[in-house]
Amino acid sequence: MDIHVWLAYLVTAVVFSLAPGSGTVNSISNGLSYGTRKSLAAIAGLQIGLSIHIILVGAGIGALVAQSALAFSIIKWVGAAYLVWLGIQKWRDRGSLSTASTDDSLSGLTLMKNAVLINLTNPKSIVFLVALFPQFIDPTQNQVTQLLVLGVTTVVIDAMVMLGYTSLASQMGRFIRSEKVMSKINKVFGSMFVGCGALLATAKA
């Protein structure tokens, strides 16, 4: 892959990762509630979900999902329902930041699993990758190598962006100790999760 093609994709990947979405909401919410260190598990989960999408695209299944109304609809509605459920749980959470940050009831593994499902059940991500990857792949060169380069670039960039969101939110969290304030913040992010679910429900292949 030519360096100028990779640089062009690098810029595109940054824009793709910076665009607000359910993964962004999850990263900011976790950063506020659990801090950067514990939220690393969730960031890893988001990348696992993204990596599975990349593998599916590379295997050609992504194109099938993009063209199959039934497959797209199933993933869409599962993802929408899951995000709405997360939003309701977040809305009902009234704990203060100090309580949330020391609460062992929600383990790093649970945060990771939640994050995997958030990215895995977002069909718009896989459709986007199906449309994006061919623009940067040279059919005369080894496609596996090119897909590997694009995939690794996508995951690394997204992980860095999500870490940035989480770290920023964690720093903000140091100034938020009131249970009343945290309750309001949880309602905001709960509403955002529900909003992401609603947008996902209206998505079309």
Rank of each mutant, 00 (worst) to 15 (best):
F128C: 00
T121I: 01
L147D: 03
V127M: 04
D93M: 09
Q47A: 10
F189A: 09
V144I: 15
W77I: 06
R94G: 06
A19H: 12
I3S: 13
I28A: 15
K113L: 15
C196F: 01
A203E: 08
Y165C: 07
Q146L: 00
F16H: 04
G195M: 06
V149E: 14
L40G: 10
A44H: 10
L56R: 07
D104T: 14
N142G: 13
Q47C: 12
L109G: 13
A8F: 11
S167D: 07
A19N: 15
L46W: 08
P20A: 13
S22G: 14
M172E: 00
P134I: 08
P139F: 00
T153P: 12
I61E: 11
L83I: 04
K204L: 05
A115T: 03
L111A: 04
N122P: 02
K187F: 03
T202W: 10
M112A: 14
G58L: 15
Q47K: 08
G79F: 09
I137V: 14
A42G: 12
A66D: 08
M182G: 00
G62T: 02
L200H: 02
A131G: 15
V127R: 02
G195I: 05
G151Y: 06
A42I: 04
V149H: 02
V156S: 01
F16V: 14
T36P: 11
T99P: 00
V11K: 12
L40H: 08
A19C: 15
V84K: 07
R37Y: 12
D138C: 07
A66W: 08
V149S: 12
G31Q: 08
G108N: 05
A100R: 14
P139I: 00
M162G: 01
P20T: 05
S178V: 05
N26A: 15
L111C: 08
Q143I: 14
V78R: 00
L147S: 05
N114H: 10
K113G: 13
K204C: 03
A63N: 14
P134E: 07
G108D: 12
R94K: 15
D104A: 15
A80W: 05
S167Y: 11
A8H: 08
L46Q: 12
N30V: 09
D93T: 02
V194H: 03
A203P: 01
S107M: 08
Q67C: 09
L147Y: 15
K187W: 07
P139W: 01
Y34L: 09
K184I: 10
I28T: 11
V57W: 14
Y165Q: 06
V116Q: 05
